[in-house]
Write a protein that binds this DNA or RNA. Sequence first.
DNA 1: GTTGAGCGTT
Length: 153
Amino acid sequence: HSHSHSPMSTRRRHVGNRANPDPNCCLGVFGLSLYTTERDLREVFSKYGPIADVSIVYDQQSRRSRGFAFVYFENVDDAKEAKERANGMELDGRRIRVDFSITKRPHTPTPGIYMGRPTYGSSRRRDYYDRGYDRGYDDRDYYSRSYRRESNT
DNA sequence: GTTGAGCGTT
C-alpha cells in the first residue's frame, strides 16, 4: 500500500490571486487614511520588526494618497506577525487591512530591460530597477508570464 | 480634510 499522493498539490497557485496571498516580506496596507504618512506606517509597523522600506501609493494626478501603502519587512517572519496584528487595527480613525503583497514593486519603466536576463558586456544599463529590491524578491515571477512591452503603440 | 474591499511608474 502506498500513500496517496496528491497530484494537484505539486503545482502551487500562481500569483495574481489576491484572495490568498502567500507570505512575503512585502505587506500591503489598505483602507488607511489619506493623511497617514509613510512615517506613521513605519513607526507603527516597526513594532513588529525591522522595516526595510515603506511606500504609500499616491495618485498620479492629485499627488494625494490613494489610501493604501506597502510595507517592506526585512524578515518575513516579522511580516507575518505584523500582518496578523496590524490587520484590522485602527489607524488615524480608520480601520486598516494588512495583507501580503501579491505584487512586488511598481512597474519598471520599460519592461524588457532586465527580465532576469543580465546583459553581458554592457551591463551598465541598470539604473534604478536594480537598486536593491530584487535582492530577495523575484519580480521575474510575475514578469515571466509572457510579459510584453505595453508602452504606447 | 468626507466616501473606501483594496496591490504600486510621485
